[in-house]
Amino acid sequence: QMLRVHVHTAGSVLTAQQPLNNVARITWQAMSAVLAGIQSMACCAYDEAIALPTEESATLALRTQQLIAYESGVADTIDPMAGSYYVEALTDKFEKEAYEYIQKIDAMGGAVAAIEQGYMQGEMAAHAYEYQTDIEKGKRTVIGVNKFADNKAVKTNDVITADLSVAERQIARVNEMKAHRDQQAVDASLKALKEAAKGEANLMPYLIDAVKTYATLGEICGVLREVFGEYQQGGNLF
């Protein structure tokens, strides 16, 4: 009963066509999450199907949550959907189907074995293909895409654009940091991490020690990659 639930609205359903429609999509997703009794939430920005959010769109995403919390009144009742047959029936259906998945995965030898066999990836790919096919065949309606489309070009004048010089400045900062850190301490911490990774030790203390010496994320991952290899689709390690 101490379970805490966080919900992030689904960026996968946002459309580049008629992007302002996404404001409504995000709002009802957020409202649904509140009705479900979540403890924390994050909302997508309406322009995420086009580019990184602008300050304006990110602020609107925040205001969407605040409007629901402070103006809608939906949060005034602890469980506004309590007793709904439809909701309870859906919950039972989802629980049943979830356990069926768990039983399949257990039969494969667990989650790791299922991933190595490509089961998880295959299920997600199959669902994505079915979802997109339904849209293209008109079985699933997406306003502005396969229904009520206006074929107007998307306005991109307000879309955020990346300043490529940011990468150059960040590289310079990392190089400067490396030039002034204690390299012997870095090497020692990475060596200790590597040795720990070869055994059964809890790696968190070693990771913290490495970070304290200013070892970079790339260096830390490189050490772990030497021990564990790198996962490739199909379960291969190299």
Rank of each mutant, 00 (worst) to 15 (best):
V211S: 09
N21C: 03
A197P: 03
Y85C: 09
E130D: 14
L62W: 04
L224V: 01
A10H: 10
T161E: 14
R25N: 02
A196N: 02
I38D: 00
V154F: 08
S12H: 07
E116C: 01
S84Q: 05
Q39W: 08
N151G: 06
R4S: 13
A45R: 04
A111C: 06
A16C: 06
I115A: 05
G235D: 01
K93M: 15
Q183H: 11
H6Q: 06
V112N: 07
R225F: 03
L224M: 14
V142A: 07
L60P: 01
V174R: 07
S84C: 13
L217Y: 08
L224Q: 01
Q39Y: 10
H127R: 11
T15A: 15
V227M: 07
L35W: 00
A128R: 09
H180L: 14
Q18Y: 03
G235W: 00
Q132V: 02
C43M: 10
M204G: 01
P19C: 11
T9W: 02
A42G: 11
F228S: 11
T77K: 11
Y119I: 02
E130P: 00
H8V: 13
E195G: 04
A42L: 13
G110W: 07
G144Q: 08
Y129D: 13
Q117R: 12
V186W: 04
N151W: 11
P53G: 09
A75K: 05
T91Y: 06
M124C: 14
L20M: 07
N146H: 09
L237M: 14
R4T: 05
I171P: 00
Q66F: 12
L3F: 08
Y214W: 11
Q65P: 02
W28S: 03
M108Y: 07
C44R: 07
T156F: 09
E56L: 15
A30D: 03
G122R: 00
T27G: 02
S165R: 04
T141L: 13
A196L: 09
K212I: 10
I105W: 00
K191T: 08
F228L: 12
T59Y: 11
V211G: 03
A113E: 05
L164R: 05
L3T: 08
V5H: 09
V142C: 03
S57P: 04
A185L: 11
L217M: 14
Q103N: 13
W28E: 04
Q18L: 11
M108T: 00
I26A: 02
A107S: 11
C43R: 01
Q184R: 12
G118T: 00
I160K: 14
V34A: 11
A185T: 02
S40F: 12
I26Q: 00
A16H: 09
V174P: 00
A201F: 04
L52N: 09
C44F: 06
G83W: 09
Y119V: 06
K93G: 05
E55V: 12
A75D: 04
V186R: 04
L3W: 10
Q29Y: 02
K104I: 05
V145L: 14
Q132M: 13
L207H: 02
Y70P: 01
F148G: 07
A10C: 14
R173C: 12
R169Y: 07
L35Y: 07
